[in-house]
Design a protein around this nucleic acid. Structure first.
Lengths: 333, 333
DNA sequence: CTGTTAGCGCTTTCAC
DNA sequence: GTGAAAGCGCTAACAG
């Protein structure tokens, strides 16, 4: 029953050539005749032979494997990114280790260390940490940071969060809002900082006075946002617009508004961020800033692959790619 | 700069022992003194040495790696399962390849084949296909099927879908419904069939006449369900309850109901399936049958690990584990 | 307790 | 065009 796995020697014997030749046709390295090729290929086919990627990797120092580290795979925004990464890298023959860090630095460390041991060719990394210098140095693996920008991240692919914050706030202003609450993540991720900058920028541009009391920090969750909105509504009844750090929070805000009998968009207008599917199917459908997850994935794959193949070269110059975002107008503004 | 990766020989030299000894302390195989252990461990620490899992795998035929194949990683139900699998298997030293098949059989084939080439120790597989005999035979890799039950699947871990269908329908009946629509996936997955069986079973138990016209098949999406519900409402105005194949569909139904000015739960009651986060935060919060994704992940890991370690033995007996589901009563019933 | 050594399956010179 | 052989980093006898 347990017919041991077939290997290259078997293929070589079966087709009456040396294993070197088998290897050559497998890798299309030339230096074999057409007949040999056909014969070998046929045997391989018949026996459903698959190269042992471990052995190959041991020789070539390439594993055709990458790691992706995300903070929370159950968050649709991140799972969309994972899906996009797979869409572009699987056709190139890579398989991807997906590591969920649960927003914990320690978990990230464990994952990185085991990815390194597994000899991944590269890592795409959505980091929860503020500074990544250490990691970057200790393993000589190409890393592309995406979404968030930690200190010392070299190559990265991020959305134009500042523009997103600006567009969202501008939309609110143009629809008549003058007292705009920003619901902000407590964590100092670059994404958060940039969105906030965009918010401030828009206020300035339209000469709306900035009120620090209208910037409230809260945990990024539906429940926390709902609670925070409720409180803000009490403290600032004049509030007529809300820009949320993400869509889940925006939904929390929406429901707090409903609870407080404020009509949306009549009394208060609302904009979310990310563009997850929820925003289309909530009631009313929500205006949001959509991030281009497909492009985020595509670009990061592109760059990572380039770095993997240039690995010999002495130096890369770090690249920063910024992906445009898009305001999606729906019924909350 | 490109200081080549440090290997076991280096550690051996640095700590003045043979590589065999290093290997022993690394694998805690005993037969070394405490001092030796300390010394070696210290050197390993200092140089941040990591074993090369490829080389190790080449020798041991174990890669400490598993594959998980899911139909759609952006579906929260599946990403929750992935998360649960990681939660239980990462602490055991495994890393997981996550493969999104996009509900396509061909994609599954590609993934399986590349997982086999990568030498994964096992696979957890949510299959889109009706019959899996071929795969199971061609690679000698332990596979645990989960969620869906294809023909010829050996070992599997599934929710008690029939009970779920029964509980959902019973809830509707007990709350007074007599004309209950079932919105069913068009695809013949075991999950769908079992939920349907539960639905029929509950009708029988409560002596409610079964009306085949009240079973409508539709694609599993928000939009399709919304449309189907709208039409069903027209054709069967007497309808007073809906049991949906999943939560997303239930949300579609909910919105169709609102559009048709039917009050929920007053005029029509509604139950979903899966228990994704959406059901808590929609309006009104939805009654649903919750699947225990954590347990699904935990059990499948448990069984897979057991099979991996028993690999030598001539035979396994296939196991089928059924995880209980739970009715979560909220505001739509 | 410790070291020596033979491969695991593959790629890659180097000869022919 | 093709083959022989070295060796990637590691484990597991085997010998002491």
């Amino acid at each position: 029953m347990e017919d041991k796995k077939i290997s290259m020697v078997d293929i070589a014997k079966l087709s009456g050539v040396s294993i070197a030749t088998v290897s050559r046709v497998l890798n299309k390295n030339g230096r074999y005749s057409k007949e040999t090729e056909d014969r070998v290929l046929k045997v391989i086919q018949e026996h459903n032979y698959k190269v042992n990627v471990n052995a190959k990797g041991l020789r070539t120092k390439r594993t055709q494997t990458i790691g992706v580290i995300v903070p929370d795979i159950t968050n649709e925004f991140f799972s969309q990114i994972v899906r996009a990464i797979e869409r572009y890298i699987v056709p190139k023959g890579y398989t991807v280790f997906v590591c969920d860090s649960n927003e914990k630095e320690e978990a990230e460390d464990i994952h990185i260390s085991s990815l390194a041991a597994k000899g991944v060719d590269g890592i795409i990394y959505i980091s929860t940490r503020g500074d990544v210098k250490k990691i970057y140095e200790s393993y000589k693996i190409p890393v592309v940071y995406i979404d968030r920008r930690p200190q010392n991240a070299g190559t990265l692919v991020i959305s134009d969060n500042e523009m997103g914050g600006f567009l969202a706030t501008q939309e609110l202003i143009e629809k008549g809002c003058r007292h705009i609450l920003m619901l902000k993540d407590t964590k100092p991720f670059s994404t958060v900082v940039h969105r906030y900058k965009g918010y401030v920028g828009a206020l300035e541009k339209y000469k709306i006075p900035f009120d620090p009391e209208l910037v409230v920090e809260t945990e990024v969750s539906y429940a926390a946002a709902r609670k925070a909105t409720k409180e803000a509504l009490l403290a600032h009844p004049e509030m007529d617009g809300i820009f949320c750090n993400n869509d889940m929070m925006a939904l929390g805000a929406l429901h707090a508004l409903r609870e407080a009998k404020r009509k949306v968009p009549r009394d208060v207008k609302l904009v979310g961020f990310d563009g997850i599917s929820l925003t289309e199917i909530c009631d009313p459908p929500m205006t949001t800033v959509r991030q281009n997850t497909d492009e985020l994935g595509k670009k990061s794959v592109e760059i990572l692959l380039r770095r993997i193949h240039k690995k010999q070269d002495a130096k890369f110059h770090d690249e920063v790619v910024v992906i445009p975002v898009e305001l999606v107008r729906r019924k909350t503004t």
